[in-house]
Structure formats: C-alpha cells, structure tokens
Amino acid sequence: MTQLFTHYNYWIVVVLMMAGFFIVIAQGNLVKKLIGLNIFQTSVFILYISSGKITGGTAPILQEGITVYSNPLPHVLILTAIVVGIATTALGLALVIRIKKAYGTIEESEIQQRDHTC
C-alpha cells in the first residue's frame, strides 16, 4: 500500500502514455493519431520532470540560503524537447494536409484501400 503513495507519479505517466498509445493504434483518423502522439509525448515529459524533483527542493536558480535544488538536467532536456516536439508536430500536420490533398481523405483505411486499387 505504501507503493501507492510513493510511486503515483509513474502511474500518472503510465495512464497518460497508454491513453496516447490507445489513440494512436485505435483511431483511423490521422489528426487524432497525432493528438495521441502528443499526449504520449507529454507523458514522457512528465516522467522526466518528476524524476528530477527532490522533496523540499526548489527551482534550480542559485540563491542565498537555499541548499536543496531540484535536478536541472531533466529540465534542460525537456525544455528543448517541447520546442522540437511542436516543430515536428507541425511537420506531421503539414504531411496530413498534403495527404488530404493527394488522397481526398485522412482516414487510414481509405488511404490503404486507394493504394491497393492503384
């Protein structure tokens, strides 16, 4: 039972990650797949940030009279990952728009059907 209170951050991550994963594999709509990937991505962010947290620590900005800081390294990694993430999401959405133009649909099953008939 003590596990429940000391590991809840990982459980939130797992739930979010699986929600994103479910959307990616169960939805045929390409935009929804990208939203699922986004949720998946956020869960990884939360995993990193929560592993950098130290109880009683404060934000990693040096100040007089503070001895415990949270780990700055995950912050750096995730900070850049967010901006790169939005850039790559935009690239994915651009691809979706082009697929819509080329195929007239963004449903995965219809796209595959059209590929086979050609």
Binding site: I49, S50, G52, G57
Partner: peptide
C-alpha cells in the same frame, strides 16, 4: 509544482 519553471514557461 515540480520546480521546473523554465519548462513551465515553454509548455
């Protein structure tokens, strides 16, 4: 809440 103020800004 997780002390990651820089990350929070970006997000």
């Amino acid at each position: 809440l997780m002390d990651a103020v820089d990350v929070a800004f970006t997000e």
